[in-house]
């Protein structure tokens, strides 16, 4: 997957490139509107990560140019402004999603993948991890071909874990992903533990391995069993 990151903050760029490149995503950078215009006209991208406050103008301006492109890339707005108007206007102008800064990189990756699946693959892709298979379209997961009875949240959690496999996922990143802003006021992340516990139980009951490990009490990691 090829992504264009339109962002003017150097450190932000380094963070995102580092996280995404580990996932095999090719990431190019445009530091201002002018450069971004130039790049979208010259190359094809699957997804554009668009910051709104750019040195030479508002990132929303780029959305019109993107509309005119033949191969329309997905647009994910990443903005520190977090204003409702910007969000509505951005989505109105054809952006696919809006992620306010600061965000968890795990969340950014999950959103990029989700948009990609939804628009480019028509949601028919099957996500595989060892014996676990996830079908997005009908929200079904199976172990060794045997369907698992998962709740909507557990399904979301499984997708999030597989998307960010081999990464340490903080409890707040998981809570934020599952409940959004609602967890802002809920300091108790026992909720995350409950879901993780249930998911583990269901996978092992279905005959799957336990790929989930606790990382120093700060979060979880989903990955191949190391022995």
């Amino acid at each position: 997957m090829k992504v264009l990151l339109v962002e003017d903050n150097q450190e932000m760029i380094l963070n995102i490139i580092k996280y995404l490149s580990q996932e095999g995503i090719i990431c190019e950078v445009a530091e201002n509107l002018f450069e971004a215009q130039d790049k979208i006209l010259s190359y094809e991208y699957d997804c554009i990560l668009l910051d709104l406050t750019l040195p030479d103008g508002n990132g929303l301006g780029l959305l019109n140019s993107i509309k005119g492109l033949e191969s329309k890339p997905n647009v994910l707005i990443i903005s520190a402004k977090n204003s409702l108007e910007d969000k509505l206007q951005g989505l109105d102008l054809g952006a696919d999603d809006y992620l306010p800064k600061p965000f968890h990189l795990a969340e950014l990756l999950a959103r990029i993948k989700a948009i990609y699946r939804r628009t480019k693959l028509g949601g028919t892709e099957v996500l595989k991890f060892e014996e676990i298979e996830v079908e997005y379209q009908n929200l079904k997961a199976s172990v060794h071909g045997k369907p698992l009875d998962l709740t909507k949240k557990e399904f979301d959690l499984l997708v999030f874990l597989i998307t960010n496999k081999n990464r340490v996922l903080g409890k707040n990143a998981i809570a934020q992903h599952l409940w959004g802003d609602y967890t802002d006021n809920l300091s108790n992340f026992d909720f995350v533990y409950q879901h993780i516990k249930n998911l583990r139980k269901k996978i092992s009951e279905g005959g799957g391995h336990d790929y989930l490990s606790t990382v120093y009490g700060i979060g979880y990691k989903f990955g191949p069993i190391q022995s």
């Binding site: 903050n9 450190e11 932000m12 963070n15 995102i16 580092k18 996280y19 580990q22 520190a80 977090n82 306010p100 800064k101 600061p102 965000f103 968890h104 990189l105 795990a106 990464r167 340490v168 903080g170 990143a173 990382v215 120093y216 009490g217 700060i218 979060g219």
Partner: peptide, 29 residues
């Protein structure tokens, strides 16, 4: 403050995924 906190959180998230000891992990978290 949004941008610097976003940068800090990204750095720490990347750091959490590097080779670290438990002590470091707890500090970073």
């Amino acid at each position: 403050i949004q941008t610097p906190t976003a940068v800090v959180s990204g750095k720490l998230e990347n750091l959490l995924n590097s080779e670290i000891t438990e002590e470091q992990a707890v500090l970073i978290y």
